[in-house]
Amino acid sequence: MKTSTVLIVILALAVVALVARLFFFSKSTSSAASAVMENLMTRTSIRAYQDRPVEDEKVEQLLRAAMAAPTAGNRQPWKFVVIKDKQTLKAISGHFNTMKMAEHAPLAIVVCGDMDNTYPADGRDYWVEDTSAATENLLLAAHALGLGAVWCGIYPMQERVAYLKDLLGLPENIVPLNVVPVGYPAENPKPKDKWKPANIHYEKWNGGDSAVR
């Protein structure tokens, strides 16, 4: 076989291999995107948990996901308190009518803002947005890991803030945003369909009319 023919064959094989690789990469990327969207659209609040501990490795994954969230000026003004103590969980459950599930959860994560590490000046309250982004990441990660969780608000209700700061011994500069009970689900509620085209506008408000296309 002539050298030129060999080169043509090799080149043809390389092209085939490249096309196949691109095809499978595209398919893999599409599959990954579908998995992400599925996780987003099927996550829902879970308030009943199995009597089963959550592995430390998964707790760390939740916290890593939370800390991957964006923050204003990359200040990362968050702190997290992981609670496994049954008496503390029972105290939270007993004090807050909206957090009865905490007593039966294997753990809860309190997402807090560090007032000594916020965006400066008028941007100080960006800590609420930053820690909220972290919380959403945590909730989505929990769902992806086969866990269930629910966002229970603390801030800005000052009585709730004061009680939790005292219960957990939080420093003055640390403000709890929420409590997130976490565990293996003992229920399977159907996710709510929250898609409302009327809430969307393009370019301008257009007199309040929906501008969905």
Score class of each variant (00 low, 15 high):
23 F>M: 09
123 G>P: 06
39 N>P: 06
116 D>M: 10
92 I>N: 06
203 E>W: 01
136 E>D: 12
210 S>G: 15
126 Y>K: 05
171 P>H: 00
177 L>C: 04
184 Y>S: 02
121 A>E: 14
118 T>A: 06
46 I>P: 00
179 V>H: 01
115 M>H: 07
33 A>C: 06
200 I>Q: 07
87 Q>W: 02
20 A>M: 13
158 Q>D: 10
19 V>N: 02
200 I>S: 05
161 V>R: 06
210 S>Y: 10
105 A>K: 00
84 K>C: 00
1 M>R: 06
162 A>S: 12
18 L>E: 07
12 A>Q: 05
127 W>F: 07
85 D>A: 06
94 G>H: 02
66 A>P: 07
213 R>W: 14
104 H>Q: 09
156 P>A: 11
94 G>S: 12
195 W>H: 07
64 R>T: 13
9 V>Q: 05
35 A>G: 03
105 A>S: 08
186 A>H: 03
169 G>C: 09
48 A>T: 12
195 W>G: 02
183 G>N: 12
197 P>Y: 04
49 Y>W: 08
43 R>Q: 14
14 A>P: 07
136 E>F: 08
192 K>S: 11
208 G>A: 02
37 M>S: 08
19 V>Q: 10
140 L>F: 14
209 D>I: 15
29 T>A: 10
1 M>T: 09
51 D>Q: 15
136 E>G: 02
192 K>D: 14
186 A>F: 00
38 E>P: 00
170 L>G: 01
11 L>G: 12
158 Q>Y: 12
188 N>A: 14
34 S>H: 10
124 R>G: 01
192 K>A: 10
208 G>Y: 03
44 T>P: 03
72 A>M: 02
75 R>I: 10
177 L>S: 02
